[in-house]
Computed example of a mutant assay.
Amino acid sequence: MPKVSIPRLAEKRANGEPIVMVTAYDYPAARAAERAGVDMVLVGDSGAQVVLGHSSTVSVTTDEMLMMSKAVRRGTETAFLVCDVAFGTTEESDEQAVATAVRFVKEAQADAIKLEGGSEARLSRIRAIVAAGIPVVAHLGLTPQTATALGGLRAQGRTAATASRIVDEAFAVQEAGAFCLVIEAVPSEIVAVVRERLSIPIIGIGAGPADGQVLVLHDLLGVTEGGIAKFVKSFGSIGEATVAAISDYAAEVRAGSFPGPEHQYAATPEAVDAARAALERHE
């Protein structure tokens, strides 16, 4: 299968072929996504919570994001690799944003980076990064990095003012040069309005039907503990299966039934005699 490219993603949108995106944060997850045949893999800053144990996405650093991104790159062959940038690493200036984006391209071989928000400052960052030759995926609606300013992790676009803003920002990020747009936690009716005229693919997460969908890997596998968002569907129960497997292992170790003879290596009589002779030298 040829590597997924930006023209291929545009072609899929034009042909009405749904685009499949999933997050990944390490080599095994990247290999699984690759073998499953997804179109795009996102190294999301959600890894701050689901992999690194931070309380929010804003705590993750560039070095941590790069560590995860490089591991995912090593496991990705045909899927298009998009990397989130850490909060605080693009906000100061266009120059800072370009320098951060360049690191992800040079060190993790990212195919594109993702930026949240559609403010004038964010549009400037998108333009600068695209001008540097680095593709950008925009992210509107619920933007977790700045969720506090939105009143928390809640759906957006449910009022006249916020719906209008999302539509305006969608066209603004497209005009700034983003080749793809993630829309999160926005009513499907608003997303349908945006899709009427927007020419770049829209990847939805909690946004109803779109040109594609993305879910956090740990959510769709059933690994995430505690409450999950309304838009999440678990397609597996890996979390409970993992706990059960570890519990079985612990029980066998404590009972002395593991390891059994079939898990051990045999020594020759001569090796045993040599070990005993060596032991006598230590008496």
Rank of each mutant, 00 (worst) to 15 (best):
P2I: 06
P7V: 01
P7H: 06
A10H: 14
E11P: 01
E11M: 14
E11I: 03
E17R: 09
M21Q: 09
D26N: 14
R31K: 15
R31N: 06
A32I: 11
A36E: 13
A36W: 08
A36R: 12
V38A: 12
V41R: 10
V43M: 09
G44P: 12
D45V: 01
S46A: 13
A48C: 08
H54P: 04
T57Q: 07
V58Q: 11
L66T: 05
R74H: 14
G75D: 10
A79I: 04
A79H: 08
C83I: 02
C83G: 07
T89P: 00
S93Q: 00
A97T: 00
K106L: 07
E107S: 02
D111E: 09
D111L: 08
K114L: 02
G117R: 00
E120W: 06
I129P: 04
I129G: 01
V130Q: 03
A131T: 01
A132H: 08
G133L: 01
P135L: 02
V136C: 09
L142I: 00
L142M: 13
T143C: 13
P144H: 00
R158Y: 07
A160Q: 12
A161I: 12
T162P: 06
T162R: 14
I166G: 05
E169F: 03
F171C: 10
F179W: 11
C180T: 10
L181D: 11
I183H: 11
S188Y: 05
V191P: 12
V191A: 08
A192D: 10
V193I: 15
R195C: 12
I203V: 14
I205L: 13
G206E: 07
G212N: 06
V216N: 06
H218R: 06
H218Y: 14
D219W: 06
F231P: 08
S234H: 06
S237T: 10
T242K: 08
A244G: 09
A250P: 13
E252A: 13
E262Y: 05
A267C: 08
P269E: 10
A271Y: 09
V272M: 12
V272R: 13
A274F: 07
A274W: 04
A275M: 15
R281F: 07
